[in-house]
């Protein structure tokens, strides 16, 4: 289970966001370079259509593979009131032939992306991960070297934190509280609820850059 919020930011303000995050988190950023395969169940496979994501982490000296399945979001009045989405998530490290395996058992490639950016992983009441990435599509199958931005000039910001049935309220509160620090630059909301870019971003970015001398640590 995890708590998640998402938002978007213009690429020109990403450096300012990085400075802000570095100051807030106090940890060095990690490079993100992930080849993501979205696989969907083939026709008439399974009681309901399903989707898994295979993530190949290219930032490691030796690429590592993870399979991820995000289940449905938590529902009900309590969930509605939360400003973050709570959903079940299972992730498992797998060997490098996972794509072959899922093809064999009836899953088809729906789309693939190359996500490039950075992440901050830190502890603030609970472990929190902030990732800032640009999504790139490939003109040809698996051609990551030719990837081009899917949304030029816009990057995705995602904040996630692991949660459990007995602590998701606490985790959601920690994530919401952290989001408030980022408000001048971007607005974060539940995935699928688009809030667009914020009008104060340019001024906030300019202020952050001038205060830091324009350099991310």
């Amino acid at each position: 289970m995890e708590c998640v919020v998402q938002g978007i930011i213009e690429t020109q303000h990403v450096e300012a966001l990085q400075i802000l995050l570095q100051g807030l988190c106090g940890v060095p950023k990690d490079r993100v370079r992930v080849h993501e395969f979205c696989l969907k169940s083939g026709p008439n496979l399974g009681v309901v259509p399903s989707e898994v994501r295979l993530l190949c982490d290219l930032a490691q000296p030796t690429p590592t593979w993870t399979v991820r399945h995000a289940g449905g979001a938590m529902r009900g009045a309590g969930a509605e009131q939360l400003s973050v989405l709570v959903r079940s998530v299972v992730e498992s490290k797998v060997s490098n032939n996972a794509l072959r395996f899922f093809y064999a058992v009836g899953y088809k490639l729906d789309h693939e992306l190359l996500k490039i950016g950075f992440a901050f992983r830190f502890q603030r009441v609970v472990p929190i991960t902030v990732t800032v990435t640009s999504a790139n599509r490939m003109p040809r199958l698996h051609a990551i070297d030719d990837a081009v931005p899917l949304t030029p000039g816009i990057q995705l910001v995602e904040i996630t934190a692991p949660a459990a049935g007995d602590n998701y309220n606490e985790v959601a509160a920690a994530v919401s509280s952290f989001c408030e620090y980022l408000v001048p630059l971007l607005h974060l909301s539940k995935p699928g609820v688009s809030t667009g870019i914020v009008p104060t971003a340019a001024a906030a970015a300019s202020s952050l850059l001038s205060n830091s001398g324009g350099k991310a640590i």
Partner: peptide, 11 residues
């Protein structure tokens, strides 16, 4: 834990 993932897929 891939066993949990496979059971959640429902396939």
């Amino acid at each position: 834990n891939i066993q949990i993932l496979m059971s959640q897929l429902g396939s």
